[in-house]
């Protein structure tokens, strides 16, 4: 037995080592490189880049648009998941498959499609191209699946008898949803929302065509970074990148804490 335990411990160590090496290579080194290059000119140069008016405008726009998108997603994503789990209708499996389309579609194709539908030549007569609204529409499109796919399995597993018990205790459907169903879905909604925030903050492909990239108006952070590189300002690009990185990380961390708190009862 000790021999086998030793071998399995060695095998475990190997797997851990390989995963760590892989993560280092794929995630940590590139991130470190970005952080390092952002501080090449020293702390003050970094600060100057980050607080340059165009950088601030881009970051502000990105942050506000992403936040808005996350709030919308939390509501609509939960609603869509609800319909997919609780309702029966023709073509349900088709709708279910369509949810993943934004994941499968190259984002620049998504941008092109949105431009065709909501651009100057819109067949619907809705032209939002080159406006901030266009950015929100593009971000909503690419982040659609996150909350839906996080909530759906939890809703499927939810004990329907809890709702029947609540009903027999005198609870109306709205009260049951608010007091029983929603608290049980909250961890899933939060984790889906955090992931869609991360995606929205860094989104480039779907936004770049439809937003018009007008500085101080519709230029998002990722486009700002791209322009900085093209304008031969890699330090500026790296500095804004680091801010995005910190922002995404902070949101994931906060979501994780909230999720843990709302899960504390699942001993």
């Amino acid at each position: 037995m000790p021999a086998r335990a030793g071998r399995s411990r060695r095998a475990g160590g190997l797997v851990l080592g390989l995963s760590t090496a892989y993560l280092t290579l794929i995630v940590l080194i590139p991130i470190a490189a970005v952080v390092a290059s952002s501080f090449e000119g020293g702390l003050s140069a970094f600060w100057d880049e980050v607080t340059s008016p165009s950088a601030v405008a881009a970051l502000e726009l990105t942050f506000v648009a992403s936040l808005l998108v996350v709030l919308v997603n939390a509501v609509t994503g939960t609603l869509i998941a609800w319909v997919l789990v609780r309702d029966d209708f023709r073509g349900k499996s088709v709708v279910n498959a369509i949810i993943d389309l934004p994941f499968a579609l190259p984002t620049v194709v998504a941008g092109l499609t949105l431009l065709a539908v909501y651009g100057p030549k819109s067949p619907l007569g809705v032209d939002v191209a080159y406006s901030r609204a266009a950015i929100v529409v593009a971000l909503l499109f690419v982040t659609l699946p996150f909350v839906v796919r996080a909530v759906q399995p939890v809703l499927l597993e939810l004990d329907r008898e809890m709702e029947e018990a609540a009903a027999s205790l005198g609870s109306r459907p709205v009260t049951t949803f608010r007091r029983i169903i929603l608290p049980n879905l909250l961890p899933a909604i939060l984790s889906g929302a955090a992931l869609s925030f991360g995606k929205a903050v860094g989104e480039f492909g779907s936004v770049v065509l439809i937003s018009g990239n007008i500085p101080f108006d519709t230029e998002v952070a990722s486009v700002h970074i791209f322009k900085s590189i093209e304008g031969d300002n890699p330090a500026g690009a790296a500095a804004v990148s680091v801010v995005l990185l910190v922002l995404s990380f902070a949101v994931l961390a906060v979501a994780d804490v909230l999720e843990r708190r709302s899960r504390r009862h699942d001993a």
Binding site: M162, S168, I180, D266
Partner: peptide
Amino acid sequence: PPQKRGVGFVFQHYAAFKHL
């Protein structure tokens, strides 16, 4: 509807509100 019948119902698998 069940919420107005004034019945108490107990389920085989408890139907506990697990977040409370």
